[in-house]
């Protein structure tokens, strides 16, 4: 059962590492799909919006990942200082 859960977690982990990136990508794809129904004539504009939007989300996710890592480091550093009584 534990093994099955590990497999399920691994399967989910194949696609979702940063939940914000995954959510951003999902929302963007949904928006482009909705735009397809609302304005089917804008096929080229939707192509550019799809690609450039996903690129923007990727850049934001990379920057956010680094900021989160740095904030985590800073937090653990503060915790260490508190333990030392400084």
């Amino acid at each position: 059962m534990t093994w099955f859960r590990t497999i399920l977690r691994k399967l989910a982990g194949l696609f979702v590492d940063d939940p914000v990136l995954a959510a951003g990508v999902a929302v963007w794809i949904a928006l482009i799909a909705i735009l397809g129904y609302a304005a089917p004539g804008l096929a080229l504009a939707r192509a550019l919006a799809l690609a450039l939007g996903l690129c923007g989300i990727l850049t934001l996710s990379i920057v956010r990942g680094a900021a989160t890592k740095r904030a985590g480091g800073a937090t653990s550093e503060r915790r260490k200082l508190r333990r030392l009584g400084t």
Binding site: L14, F15, D17, D18, L21, L58, I62, G65, A66
Partner: peptide, 14 residues
């Protein structure tokens, strides 16, 4: 594939 590829790309970039 987009979810999967972007996850690898993000990790490699970091």
């Amino acid at each position: 594939l987009v979810f999967f590829g972007l996850r690898w790309l993000r990790k490699a970039a970091l």
